[in-house]
């Protein structure tokens, strides 16, 4: 099984460049604007898109992404409409990998089999489900792999060498290394510490390692790009979006551009990296 994710990382490896992964929340600040933002990301330099599934109780997210989810829900976003965004995005873009990221309950309530079928047919390539550790692989991970979707796992500073094999066993696509023990939007980790962690994980897997949490600036993205196969930026983009909204939290003429401009600046940082990690 080769997904768009595998293809994209293979291309980037040939170019000798680290991937730039962008996270935005589906339906933030409303479904229509959200679709325009997603469409704008690849043009602005995003190599892989992570699209958040809004949830009322995002236990691993900081205030920015919590608020983004609540804005989306208030605007009537659902998991079904999230899949609609992916389907509409795929009409014009059949190359950029798209990963859904969220929590298990909306998927469980949608129905795992139906969700996997609909996600696949919408053009989703992979899933990151924060509250499904390997101990719960029967729930969604194994069925997702059978359905031809990548299941991307988070590895963290608490995932030691003893535990890494369990975490990596059913992981595919890439490994998302969470650079700090904490919630999204927290302080950044030191690039050298991240480099050591990436090297440690690479001893256990040939999968690309993308690093997230705490990357906000082109300089930080560049520093991480020199140590890892990809860097993930989420909270900074969500904050840029939020700062473009009107007093009632509605999209303005600036909203799509606010996200696109920051994406472009960060993408330049990634592209300025000396070389991607081998």
């Amino acid at each position: 099984m080769t997904t768009r994710i595998d293809t994209r990382f293979a291309e980037l490896k040939k170019q000798g460049r680290s991937a730039f992964v962008t996270y935005v929340m589906a339906g933030d600040p409303d479904p229509a604007t959200s679709l325009e933002i997603v469409k704008a990301l690849p043009k602005a330099g995003s190599d892989v898109i992570e699209l958040g599934i809004p949830f009322t109780d995002p236990m691993a997210d900081g205030p920015s992404i919590q608020a983004a989810g609540l804005r989306a829900l208030k605007a009537g976003m659902t998991l079904k409409k999230t899949l609609d965004v992916v389907r509409d995005f795929r009409k014009d873009d059949n190359a950029t990998p798209l990963v859904l990221m969220g929590y298990y309950n909306p998927i469980y309530i949608y129905g795992v089999d139906k969700f996997l079928a609909d996600a696949k047919s919408s053009g989703v390539d992979g899933l990151i489900v924060v509250d499904l550790p390997p101990e719960e692989d029967d729930e969604l991970c194994i069925p997702a792999l059978k359905a031809g979707l990548n299941f991307i796992r988070l590895a963290t500073p608490t995932t030691d060498d003893k535990r890494l094999p369990a975490v990596l066993t059913n992981t595919s696509g890439f490994v998302y290394y969470v650079s700090i023990a904490g919630i999204t939007g927290a302080a950044a980790a030191d690039a050298n510490v991240v480099g050591e962690a990436v090297a440690r994980i690479k001893r256990h897997t040939g999968l690309p390692i993308c690093v997230g949490f705490g990357i906000r600036t082109p300089e930080a993205a560049r520093a991480i790009a020199e140590k890892a196969d990809g860097s993930v930026v989420g909270t900074a983009l969500v904050d840029a979006l939020k700062n473009s909204l009107d007093a009632e939290g509605r999209a303005t003429a600036k909203t799509v551009n606010a996200v696109a401009e920051l994406t472009a600046a960060l993408a330049q940082g990634v592209r300025a990296a000396k070389q991607a990690a081998g």
Partner: peptide, 20 residues
């Protein structure tokens, strides 16, 4: 042994917490 009472229970937590 995996913390299930019938279909209920389990360990639905972020990886950061799993080792602990």
């Amino acid at each position: 042994e995996r913390g299930h009472f019938g279909i209920f229970g389990g360990r639905f937590v972020a990886e950061t917490l799993m080792p602990l």
